[in-house]
Design a protein around this nucleic acid. Sequence first.
RNA 1: GGAAGCUUAGCUCAGUUGGGAGAGCGCUUCCUUCACACGGAAGAGGUCAGGGGUUCGAGCCCCCUAGCAUCCACCA
Length: 876
Amino acid sequence: MSKELATKYDHLAVENGKYQKWLDHGCFKSGDKSKPGYCIVIPPPNVTGKLHIGHTTDESLQDMLTRYKRLKGFDALYLPGMDHAGIATQAKVEARLREKGISRYDLGREKFLEQVWAWKDEYADTIHQQWAKEGLCLDYSKERFTLDEGLSDAVKEVFITLYNKGLIYRGKRIINWDPVQRTALSNIEVIYEETESKMYYFKYVFEGSKDFLTVATTRPETMFGDVCVVVNPKDKRYKSAVGKKVINPANGDLLPIIADEYVDIEFGTGAMKCTPAHDPNDFAISEKYHLEKPICMNPDGTMNEICGKYKGMDRMVCRNTLVDDIDKAGLLIKIEKHINQVGYSERSHAIVEPYLSDQWFVKMEPLAKQALDFQQTADKIKFYPDRFEKIFTNWMTGIEDWCISRQLWWGHRIPAWYHKDTGEIHVGKEAPKDIENWDQDPDVLDTWFSSALWPFSTLGWPAKTEDLERYFPTDVLVTGYDIIFFWVARMIFQSLEFTKQKPFKDCLIHGLIRDSEGRKMSKSLGNGIDPMEVIDQYGADALRWFLTASASPGLDMRYSEEKIQAAWNFINKIWNASRFVMLNLGDDFKPTEIKYNELTDVDKWIIARLNKTIESVDENMDKYEFVVVGTYLYNFIWDDFCSWYIELAKVNLSGADFKVKKQTQNVLYYVLDSITKLIHPFMPFVSEEIYQTLHNNDQIFIINDKWPKAYEYGAKDDSSQSIEMIIETIKRIRNYKSENKMLPNAKIAIKMVSKSLQRKEAIKRNAAYLKRFGFVDDLSIDDILDKSEDGAFFSVGNGIDMLIPLKGNIDTKVEKERLKLELLRLEAELKRSNAILNNKAFVAKAPAAKVEQEKAKLADYNSQYKSIKEKLDLLK
RNA sequence: GGAAGCUUAGCUCAGUUGGGAGAGCGCUUCCUUCACACGGAAGAGGUCAGGGGUUCGAGCCCCCUAGCAUCCACCA
């Protein structure tokens, strides 16, 4: 052991430089064909800025799984990449330009895109540095970007194929229009928020009459686009009105009154204005009755030329001005407060305008059906937790067509050209030959269109590559529930359509990280946590342990610094335990073969505990139950290994028996070595540091080693009763001293009593531990207790009693009370145990092992009860 | 309106086919013993939201109620 660990865990010293070394030694390279393949693709972060703690959560889980699989002997590929993030990135770059007083239109498309690419390079760089700090074992030789050549080709391939199959079409539909970004949005990019708005009631006077009917609206400015008033045919109030005309108070136009079942008699006045170009339901009515669809707004949300004097006004200004004017004309009846759901743009937070516009759509019904059918097969994607499958299938059922065109510049240009004269559409990878006669569609595709292809486009699709063959379908997708619709669902139907396979076998959904008060982290609240600051302060290992080992699948978790500190403390504990081991192995230590049968009881005990831990960890890693894994590791390392084994081993290490010492050293080495691998997926840096130090070699890397095997030593049914008994006895002694206000290190005499030769032998073998940790200076072992002997009496269990002799110094009254309490406790146990065992249904139905276990407990309680009862009777 | 969650110790949360209520932090008492005081030892603290049901047995399964938060849909 030429290199020693520092006395205190220093995360900065441990983590600095390691990542580069891993890269230099190709630790993250994939492609070893002698092993089975395994693959996780990173959910590509947006190149809009820095990674936040949500990314770190995702990535910690993915990295943990990849490292685990590597140790398990897989050729595990963790594939990196980033997303161009159309709207988001363009908005950032536009905002930056705006500070200089420049708009994208000033620059023009080409110059503007140069600016965006520069931005992309800058932030890609930042993201790379962040991944390094997180310690992600990404294979950078396979890194992809959604706008790179291969992926762009995949996008074109998909677009053209779907177009030719009739699953992509261009049409004039009501879409969600963001007047700030000046682009169409898909339905899920609109966030509905309950908003207090106003309901305006206007008089619509009948043509040639003074009578009127009342129409209510929340958006008066759209009245310039009205084409009729609709009532329900069953509405008696308006029976006679149908077929007549009323005057639009906004512009004096005559509007026919028509009848349609769509109108809800109960709502408002029962008379609805119909604005086909600015409302999806009105649009449907206009289609049904072949009505005009006049548009009254410009793309930037100002009123257009059909609005007369309101032309050029912003829609909200127009609303107020128009209402004033109508009021002056005596046609305003009332204004009421009205709570309704208003749609806001996810990115710009502008109020979204339903707007009639020419856009490209993906026809969802056949694709959704394919995905839903697939989930009925045995080959279906497994969601963890499985309730998210329902979220997915519910959404896919009855889903509307996906608007995929965006009036932006940053993104995949739609591969469609329109003939200047004939209007003919050409869709293809290349432009038509007589390009001078054609104009390419200026729009780009929704950024999620390319993300949807990510699991296979990154592996080379549409080419039939070796990687695709080897790593696809990918093994698990890890992401938050907030993007199931945006991304997960779309990957599934696109993958099924184009590869005829699922994109991933498992889908692991995690929750969101909230602040310590349970609020969502957001820029406006300023409550976001920068993962890089946390890493600087506590280390990536501590942050990763917190993120992976304390979050239940699918549930949100609160961030708090105390929890990170607790994680740090745990690592510090591991660090110091490692220090202890290395100090006690010595500089020239070379492990020799562990001869299991020659080990002391404590050595066998820790190996039994290790075996059980490995078994449980394996089982729960495969179920993605990381909290359970974390609990097993924590308890094993802190309680079993640090609190008990290291302490007990001190006896072996300081003893005179060289062979015992050497074997215990071997076991310490073996267990610590196993621990480093067990924690490696969670804490890659510190585990590497300890591993290399333990092996006295900084040119070997833990990730290339093998995951520990349960029962490499010892058998499954090995009993570790003798050490459990020793531990129990030590606890009893400590408790007795504490209760009796004795110092913990007060010397004490004890008498251990058992009729079993085997148990007496076990006590004799392990007497040194009792002496050292119970501070026992006089230990005697007997077959039978002379019940008249004065002292504090205990039944330790397992047929062993203990007496702390007090030779006349005992307060008999107190001792009697203590024993009575103990009897009461045992009586309750006996009652419970008997009740269960006397139950025929239990004995018949419960697993045999469970029944046996209960019987053994009952026997033990009985013997303890008997011992104490006898002793108590003698005191009377 | 529909769906899927959550409610367990003072706080934050685990609790894996139903079989003796757990952890971290905080709190009390004691201990600077040669891995660790970012530690060790011993403790206190819970009618598992409430009510009903199934079962020999329920924190866990079923039903109802209340509170909290989420997603989807939506009427002008």
